[in-house]
């Protein structure tokens, strides 16, 4: 029978490199916490009662994710055009393998992909996170309205398409660290000042003697 008692990170982690008193961190169910962290940055920590870190993670990661979505879009071409799923011939969007770790915020991209695969127009009547058209022609006469081709997106958004891609990829990769933190607690940090601290303590003891 599996043990349902709440878990704590073992061995005890250090609260601070300057304060060497170990502190127990209640991880509750680490698998559930990791899953919640995968759904939304900070949600796993909120479940564990680590509220400050939950807020820090959520604000930090969602800020750069939303900034990326804003950068790679406009009212003309649609918003969040750098976040989309596409594994078609001629447009293998491998960047999404990094972006997807943000969790639910990239769900619209998955829904748009599934909708697009069945040959329908983009969902919600907008090209938000919708995969672009694929065109073999440099100047496709059909490429005059959203969702546009990748070529047109790059042309109209200039460098902001790539900047948005980098921002959203970083958000996804950083949430990977957050998922591990929710699962196993903070990495035990052996500060470089440990030996200095011990040397200072040794010096104090010698002076006292």
């Amino acid at each position: 029978m599996p043990d349902s008692s709440p878990q704590t990170s073992t061995p005890p982690v250090k609260k601070d490199e300057q304060a060497f008193e170990p502190v127990e961190i209640p991880l509750r169910d680490p698998w559930l916490a990791a899953f919640l962290a995968l759904l939304l940055p900070g949600l796993g920590h909120y479940y564990q009662g680590r509220l400050k870190k939950a807020v820090l993670y959520f604000v930090t990661i969602m800020t750069i994710f939303c900034t990326g979505v804003y950068l790679a879009g406009s009212s003309e071409v649609g918003w969040g055009r750098c976040v989309y799923v596409s594994f078609r011939m001629g447009d293998q969007r491998l960047h999404f393998l990094c972006q997807m770790w943000v969790g639910l915020p990239v769900l619209p991209a998955v829904l748009q992909y599934l909708h697009d695969s069945s040959g329908h127009q983009p969902l919600w009547g907008s090209s938000f996170m919708a995969p672009p058209l694929i065109s073999a022609e440099p100047r496709d006469p059909q490429d005059l309205a959203p969702p546009f081709t990748v070529h047109t997106l790059n042309k109209r958004l200039h460098r902001y398409f790539d900047l948005g891609t980098v921002y959203t990829m970083m958000a996804g990769l950083l949430n990977l660290l957050v998922i591990f933190d929710a699962f196993a607690g903070p990495v035990i940090f052996e500060s470089g000042s440990t030996s200095e601290e011990e040397a200072r303590r040794g010096g104090d003891e010698a002076a006292a003697a």
Binding site: K53, L56, Y57, I64, V166, P186, F189
Partner: peptide
């Protein structure tokens, strides 16, 4: 913004205390 985000998240995976996180 990327440097700030990376620093904060990386440091937060090493500490629980907010003061230590910001210093790191």
């Amino acid at each position: 913004p990327l440097i700030v985000a990376m620093s904060l998240v990386y440091a937060a995976t090493r500490h629980e205390d907010l003061g230590a996180i910001f210093r790191h």
